[in-house]
Simulated scan of single mutants.
Amino acid sequence: MADLELLDKSIRRVPDFPKPGILFYDITSVFVNPEAFKYCIDKMVEIYKDSEIEAIAGVDSRGFLFAAPLAEKLGIPMVLIRKKGKLPGDTYSCKYALEYGTAEVEVHKADVEKGKKYLVVDDLIATGGTLVAARNLIEQGGGKVTDFFGVIGLPELNYEKVLAPSKITTLINYSGK
Score class of each variant (00 low, 15 high):
residue 106 E to A: 09
residue 155 P to K: 04
residue 162 V to K: 13
residue 113 E to I: 15
residue 163 L to H: 04
residue 133 A to Y: 07
residue 11 I to M: 12
residue 149 F to P: 06
residue 40 C to I: 13
residue 140 Q to A: 10
residue 36 A to W: 04
residue 104 E to C: 12
residue 32 V to A: 12
residue 123 D to I: 02
residue 8 D to R: 15
residue 125 I to E: 02
residue 29 S to A: 13
residue 118 Y to R: 13
residue 121 V to L: 05
residue 102 T to Y: 08
residue 91 T to R: 04
residue 157 L to V: 03
residue 53 I to F: 07
residue 46 E to H: 03
residue 53 I to S: 11
residue 95 K to T: 15
residue 79 V to T: 15
residue 126 A to C: 09
residue 98 L to F: 04
residue 20 P to N: 12
residue 55 A to S: 15
residue 55 A to P: 03
residue 92 Y to W: 09
residue 120 V to C: 08
residue 13 R to L: 12
residue 40 C to D: 07
residue 1 M to V: 14
residue 146 T to K: 06
residue 91 T to V: 11
residue 20 P to Y: 00
residue 124 L to N: 01
residue 125 I to N: 01
residue 110 A to D: 15
residue 115 G to K: 10
residue 76 I to A: 09
residue 18 P to G: 03
residue 28 T to C: 11
residue 59 V to A: 10
residue 114 K to P: 00
residue 44 M to W: 03
residue 54 E to C: 08
residue 109 K to N: 09
residue 104 E to L: 05
residue 168 I to P: 07
residue 159 Y to M: 06
residue 127 T to K: 09
residue 54 E to R: 12
residue 128 G to N: 02
residue 146 T to C: 10
residue 96 Y to G: 13
residue 139 E to R: 02
residue 59 V to H: 06
residue 111 D to Q: 13
residue 62 R to V: 08
residue 163 L to W: 03
residue 57 A to H: 12
residue 30 V to N: 09
residue 81 I to N: 05
residue 31 F to Y: 14
residue 88 P to A: 15
residue 61 S to K: 02
residue 71 A to V: 06
